[in-house]
Design a protein around this nucleic acid. Structure first.
Length: 908
RNA sequence: GCGCGAUUAGCUCAGGGGUAGAGCACAUGCUUCACACGCAUGGGGUCGUUGGUUCAAAUCCAACAUCGCGCACCA
């Protein structure tokens, strides 16, 4: 029998096997016609062509734990999986592939052909992350997998656009937007990341027109935009320059006179207090330009090179090259005063990683709907954020919200459902703004073009990816599904997409369903590397979760990630690289994941031990044999019930780490280290059969209930052991077995349980003392030592066998009348005085030193407590239990000091 | 600049008004018939600094320091 179970747990095959069995059994399916209370989650859809990261592991493990726990609690669970088309990310990948394999750009292919390629790419690489999630054991309802560009979903995205166009929330206009010169598209504010950059501050001189020899000194970080300067601005209160306002300055090249204006926005303290105004290439400058009626001169091409307006020298040049060149040219003209090193923040495109360019362009915008309702929902905890502090971040964003630029100059995505009549298309596309009144019947907003499309052209742009994701909680469900599972219960996601996604889903939820999209949002931590850096591909500091699963097992990875994932702060994931002893290669190890693997192995072996004791007994017998339960049986069952109760609480509070730690501690410490060790004698051949049977019943009760509690965290190994130990007979899968309604010890007299627990703990404490003493004398733990005990409690003699086993004692003589010889170590245990005769084995000097140290420590503690108790305030004001505790401790210490003194005396 | 976190053992992190905790690492001893991915025992911390509240502060409050994150930015 034992031969069937290998000594070490091998997760690979076991995990795949169970995943398939679960799927075959339909155990992941969420049934909308069920009578059970609903529990639902929608997955934060990963990028369709993405690969699994540790962040995904963290996030999806939590969702799986919630889902599996909800099933065990008898709920009808529906966890909806899917992927996101991820506009820019996917299109960039396809474009890169095209460039590398065929040397072509998307424009070489044309829109239709390019989209075909993109879909091919999606078909080829789109399933990877889904397979990886399955590897992790995620119990999603895989039949319901959705993609944001599925036909039905796309339709809803476009309908959403039409809806908001008709309601007036969506408008088109020429605005200053964030332009990505690499991806050649506009971006939303959220897609721009500010990064400090080391650059230079150039001080240059602009001549004052008509004032020979007079100059204005201007500081700028971007001399390459000076060709687009159409004004110079100073603060109206700045006395240095007041007399110049209204005059003109001379832009050196292309040479032109530009007005000097006054604007409050200028900070007199910065640089020289003079700003060159480039309305086409800076958001603030644009506003100043608007206010002061200054001309807009756009000198940049969409790809970041300069255009003809910049002058012959610069046309076609890249913006950064032009920066150098412009500075040189200024210098050559004697207009460059000085250059300083300077650090400032520059906006980068989140996806492409290049500095964005503020650019005026025609885009579609959305005025956010349902702002008040959405803000209130979180503030009033109608939607609960955890950790709660994220509610503040959300509120702050909602209060300062700007219209959302939703159009993207991409091809991969949902095309904007707007049509222009061919004869007026050019005019309408170029119009400063667009509405029904001016466009008349030349504009059509709807899913299908009028007249079958003849004579109509569609808007070229697609929608921001998040404009589709924000419909995810309901657009993925049909009406019947929504009826059962919407609003969803929990959303688990990273705080980095609170604005991108969470806030917008709330607004869309209220707008389209009249309800909140979810009841709870749990924000996970962000996983960082040892140096605290965010995990990223480019840094190469992110271990591949698939490697970790292959090496340690999915359960180990899941459990470990839960053990280290706090609720609120970031978490560091440690990977240690070690030189491979043989080859030159590097071997890496993750000590945090090893803990999970070790734990799985411990569990495995405890069950292996159980198997060695013979077949499963009927654990329903617990009530029948209740009279035969030992103190250790009662103690461990009480601890099991306490564990179950604690887990209820930590699950309610979404304290994953606490649950994991509690599960770990119970099994390793309470169950294996103490319970199993104390009942081992009951499994011996010479053990009383009735006693043996009782122990087996308890063993099985603990294991079966424990496996069930552990299952959400380590689903595969728990299911495997559930079957191997024979708990599956008749009952089916562990993951489909509801949690027992009643505690294991229900019906057992609580007084009896408490008494047993107290006795067991007395035996354990005595064991600790005895082991400690042995170790002090350098006696191996398995060395048989003879102890003498003067029992102070009547029942002590009943537990001598167990005590002997636990202490590694050859004999414990409790017959009384033992007279210790001088120097015999004596220790006070909860069971009574114990002696460990040394029989000349031990170094007397060392022993004296040890006792001396112990006395010093005890006296120090005693002094501290005595001081505390002497403090009148303490005894009067402190809670009674605390005072009492300290009194007891004082008495115990007094006795101990006395004892030690005696021992020391004996030695001399 | 505003806001939010963090600061506890060598490392990664729990905890939390009333005697400092875990895992790893370290030391010593164990081929104890479930497990060396193991067992036993131990060493190691004035809980960032300074004040305040309290009989009592690592814990609550305030300020500061350092690190991190978010928002807003001065060209």
């Amino acid at each position: 029998m034992s031969a069937e179970i290998p000594k070490a747990y091998e997760p690979g095959a076991v995990e795949d096997k169970w995943f398939n069995r679960w799927v075959e059994a339909g155990a992941f399916r969420g049934d909308e016609s069920s009578d059970r209370p609903p529990y639902s989650i929608v997955i934060p859809p990963p990028n369709v062509t993405g690969v699994l990261t540790l962040g995904h592991v963290l996030n999806n493990t939590m969702q799986d734990i919630l889902a599996r726990r909800a099933r065990a609690e008898g709920k009808e669970v529906m966890w909806l999986p899917g992927t996101d088309h991820a506009g820019i990310a996917t299109q960039s990948k396809v474009e890169r592939h095209l460039r590398e394999s065929e040397g072509k750009t998307r424009r070489d292919l044309g829109r239709e052909e390019f989209l075909k390629r993109a879909w091919d790419w999606k078909e080829k690489h789109g399933g990877i992350i889904i397979r990886q999630l399955k590897k992790l054991g995620c119990s999603c309802d895989w039949d319901r997998e959705r993609f944001t560009m599925d036909e039905g979903y796309s339709r809803q995205v476009q309908e959403c656009f039409v809806h908001f166009f008709n309601s007036g929330h969506i408008y088109r206009g020429k605005r200053m937007v964030n332009w990505c010169p690499a991806s050649l598209t506009a971006l939303s504010d959220e897609e721009v990341i500010m990064k400090p950059q080391r650059g230079k501050l150039y001080y240059m001189r602009y001549e004052i027109a008509g004032e020979d020899g007079e100059y204005l000194e201007i500081a700028t970080t971007r001399p390459e935009t000076l060709m687009g300067d159409s004004g110079v601005a100073v603060n109206p209160k700045d006395e240095r320059y007041g007399h110049l306002v209204g005059k003109n300055a001379v832009r050196p090249f292309p040479r032109a006179e530009i007005p000097i204006v006054a604007d409050e926005h200028i900070d007199p303290e910065f640089g020289t207090g003079v700003l060159k105004v480039t309305p086409a290439h800076d958001k603030a400058d644009f506003e100043i330009g608007q206010k002061n009626g200054i001309e807009v001169i756009d000198i940049l091409n969409p790809d970041g090179t300069l255009n003809a307006l910049a002058g012959e020298d610069f046309a076609g040049m890249d913006r950064f090259e032009a920066r150098e060149k412009a500075a040189e040219k200024l210098d050559g003209m004697g207009l460059l005063v000085r250059v300083e090193d300077y650090e400032n923040n520059v906006g980068f495109s989140e996806r492409a990683g290049v500095p964005i360019e503020p650019r005026i362009s025609m885009q579609w915008f959305l005025r956010y709907p349902k702002l008040e309702e959405s803000t209130r929902a979180v503030a009033e905890r109608e939607i609960k954020f955890r950790p709660e502090r994220w509610a503040k971040t959300y509120a702050h964003w909602m209060e300062n919200i700007q219209d959302w630029c939703i159009s993207r100059q991409l091809w991969w995505g949902h095309r904007i459902p707007v049509w222009y009549r061919e004869d007026r298309a050019e005019e309408l596309r170029g119009a400063e703004s667009l509405d029904r009144e001016t466009a008349g019947d030349a504009l059509y907003v709807g899913l299908e073009p009028p007249d079958g499309g003849a004579g109509w052209v569609q808007d070229e742009d697609v929608l921001d990816t998040w404009f589709s994701s924000w419909l995810w909680p309901f657009a993925t469900m049909d009406e019947a599904t929504r009826g059962k599972f919407y609003p969803t219960t929990d959303l688990v996601t990273g705080p980095d997409i609170i604005f991108f996604w969470v806030a917008r889903m709330i607004m869309a939820g209220y707008e389209f369903t009249g309800e909140k999209p979810f009841a709870n949002v749990f924000f996970t931590s962000i996983i960082r590397d040892k140096q605290g850096r965010k995990m990223s591909k480019s840094l190469g500091n992110s271990p591949d979760p698939l490697d970790l699963i292959a090496k340690y097992g999915a359960d180990a990875l899941r459990f470990s990630v839960m053990r280290i994932a706090p609720t609120g702060t970031d978490v560091r994931f440690i990977e240690e690289k070690k030189r491979d002893k043989k080859g030159g290669g590097e071997e890496s190890s993750c000590p945090q994941v090893e803990e999970g693997r070790n734990f799985a192995n411990k569990l495995w072996n405890a069950c292996r031990f159980r198997q060695m004791q013979g077949g499963t007994v009927d654990s329903d017998q617990l009530s029948v044999i209740s009279g035969r339960l030992s103190i250790y049986d009662l103690d461990i069952l009480a601890k099991l019930d306490a564990l179950a109760a604690d887990l209820v609480r930590s699950f309610e509070a979404y304290k994953f780490q606490e649950s994991a730690s509690r599960l770990y501690d119970f099994f390793w410490n309470e169950f294996c280290d103490w319970y199993l060790e104390s009942i081992k004698s009951h499994f011996r051949d010479d053990a009383e059969p009735a006693r043996r049977e009782a122990a087996l019943v308890v063993f099985d009760t603990v294991l079966s209930r424990y496996l069930q509690l552990l299952h959400p965290f380590m689903p595969h190994i728990s299911e495997e052991l559930w079957e191997k130990l024979g708990f599956a007979e008749g009952g089916g899968l562990l993951m489909q077995t509801p949690l027992p309604g009643a505690p294991a010890l229900e019906g057992v007299d609580p007084g009896r349980v408490a008494e047993a627990a107290s006795r067991a703990s007395a035996v354990f404490e005595t064991t600790r003392l005895a082991r400690h003493l042995k170790a002090q004398y350098n006696l191996a733990a398995n060395r048989n030592v003879k102890f003498h005990l003067e029992p102070e409690v009547g029942w002590a003699t009943e537990e001598l066998d167990t005590l002997k086993l636990l202490c590694g004692a050859g004999e414990i003589d409790a017959s009384g009348g033992y007279l210790p010889t001088a120097g015999t170590p004596t220790f006070l245990t909860p069971l009574g005085k114990m002696y460990m005769p040394l029989e000349g084995l031990v170094d007397v000097e060392a022993e004296r030193e040890r006792i001396g140290k112990e006395i010093a420590k005890a006296e120090k503690d005693l002094k501290q407590i005595a001081g505390k108790l002497a403090n009148a305030n303490f005894t009067e004001r402190a809670p009674k239990e605390v005072v009492e505790e300290n009194r007891e401790r004082r008495e115990a210490l007094k006795v101990r000091v006395e004892q030690l003194g005696e021992m020391l005396a004996n030695l001399s």
